[in-house]
């Protein structure tokens, strides 16, 4: 089974490794035609403003949005989660792909000095060691969105809506691939 990784910018190599370890074949997605014949797509960590600009210039964003409307499995981490959100608190002019019915707060924990590694508990998955790097969190979820995990303060950090998964953190940095396995299972069942 082929899983695409959005590869215009970000920690693509780490997601490639995690997808391989989950027993799937990773495919780098740099142009719209690279999305053909895939079973799912991972949006890595990176800079959300850069993701939008690079994908918009070549029409990759439109293809991702239209696939999402058909229920194509997509998993976004950190910047990828921001791209999947409906809107961003405090940045009304920063465009997103509006794939999940959620609102996010960018750099919600602060700047790099607040970045940290933590073991979280995720519903249906268990304990996972993950990294928060200038991480966002989710401040609003729509009715169709299931909360899979919250941080110690109760902020929402991991959500599912049908075939879409969104994480505020990086499960690809620690070598703990439970969440990638979970996503590959979703893609397999579609």
């Amino acid at each position: 089974m082929k899983i695409g990784i959005f590869a215009l910018q970000g920690d693509v190599a780490e997601h490639i490794k995690a997808i391989e370890a989950s027993g799937c074949t990773p495919v780098q997605v740099r142009n719209p035609q690279d999305l053909d014949n895939l079973s799912g797509l991972v949006l890595p960590g990176g800079e959300s403003t850069t993701f939008w600009k690079l994908s918009n210039r070549i029409g990759l964003d439109k293809k991702i949005i239209s696939l999402a409307k058909e229920g194509f499995p997509i998993f976004g981490t950190c910047a990828g989660l921001i791209m999947m959100s409906h809107d961003i608190e405090g940045y009304p002019n920063q465009p997103t792909w509006d794939i999940m019915d959620i609102t996010v707060r960018r750099n919600a924990y602060g700047r790099q000095l607040e970045s940290h590694v933590e073991t979280i508990h995720a519903k249906d998955i268990g304990d996972v060691s993950v990294a928060f790097i200038r991480a966002p969190f989710i401040t609003r979820v729509g009715e169709k969105v299931e909360v899979l995990s919250c941080d110690k303060e109760g902020n929402i950090i991991f959500v599912r809506q049908g075939n879409f998964l969104g994480a505020a953190f990086h499960p690809e940095m620690t070598g703990d691939i439970k969440i990638h396995n979970f996503f590959c299972d979703i893609a397999r069942r579609v």
């Binding site: 215009l8 910018q9 920690d11 693509v12 910047a79 790099q112 990294a131 790097i133 620690t174």
Partner: peptide, 14 residues
Amino acid sequence: FLVKKGLADMLKGG
């Protein structure tokens, strides 16, 4: 060190 190196990982390709 993982999160220090990790921020640079997020900048790759940029």
